[in-house]
Design a protein around this nucleic acid. Structure first.
Lengths: 138, 138
DNA sequence: TACTTATTGAAAATGATTTTCAATTTCAAA
DNA sequence: TTTGAAATTGAAAATCATTTTCAATAAGTA
């Protein structure tokens, strides 16, 4: 997957390719940390000066709808986005630089079964997220 | 812990006891699902008609600061609050009625060690949350 | 190349939250 | 008790993020 693949996905879904969308897509694609709409706006404007904040919101909306990006929940706020994980992966966030990584391989089946029995809930989804320090921030 | 204990906590921390605070505290204390500020306002006004929305925001802020309530993150938004868990507990949310329960007993040590080794991150915190259907909503 | 229609950015509107402020209330000290 | 300083109040105004409106422009098909 490259930024071009995202643009292709947009096009395949009936959306047009424009300078505004290219700038937003490339910006979010390149990011290693979650970006808020305003941060995307500031960064993407370096690629395309005439970009409007409204187009950032609209493009993020479409990328999220196509599951190409996902919202990142953090103690300081939940309005930031990052490239979506492929398959069943969870987030790992650096508390210092904000870097976002993914990991897989959680096995919560035993826990889910236990909690299900204990509480009577039928468990259908889970959120798991780790916070810590990335290698270069330690 | 009762609602009175929360009020006592507020007082111990130098905050005064007022009718507005009592109404907000009792409302959030009684809730079995996460409530937004506006929902708290509507419910608490049944206890104290003169309550202002601003006081709801201010009281929630203090309760959160004292770790008596916590923000609940959900796909549809992250502005709702529920009584905080005691100790190391995680949330279990009913996707139908919104009921919030807690569970403990997660053992992620093995997983954390593996991910730590694989990614080089020093992992310091984790968020785990289950979604499903509570007994009466199944 | 022409033309239909999606997309644009600016401006206005909205909605949630925060700040300001004068009036009121709490609560400690007299 | 009463008093009075200081915290707290609700209403209104201000702010901030996000959404809607709209006329002009640009994309991409015919």
């Amino acid at each position: 997957m490259t930024a071009d693949a995202w643009l292709a996905q947009l096009q395949e879904n009936g959306y047009r390719l424009t300078a505004a969308r290219r700038a937003v897509v490339e910006t979010v694609w390149q990011a290693t940390r979650a970006l808020t709409p305003l941060e995307v706006f500031d960064l993407a404007r370096k690629k395309y000066r005439a970009l409007g904040l409204v187009s950032v919101y609209r493009t993020l909306e479409k990328l999220e709808e196509l599951h190409l990006i996902q919202r990142v929940h953090q103690p300081q706020g939940c309005q930031a986005f990052i490239a979506a994980s492929r398959g069943h992966e969870h987030l790992l966030l650096c508390q210092n630089c904000g870097r976002v990584s993914f990991f897989e391989g959680d096995d919560l089946d035993a826990l889910i079964k236990t909690i299900s029995k204990k509480t009577g809930y039928q468990i259908r989804e889970h959120w798991l997220q780790f916070f810590g320090l990335c290698q270069s921030c330690q």
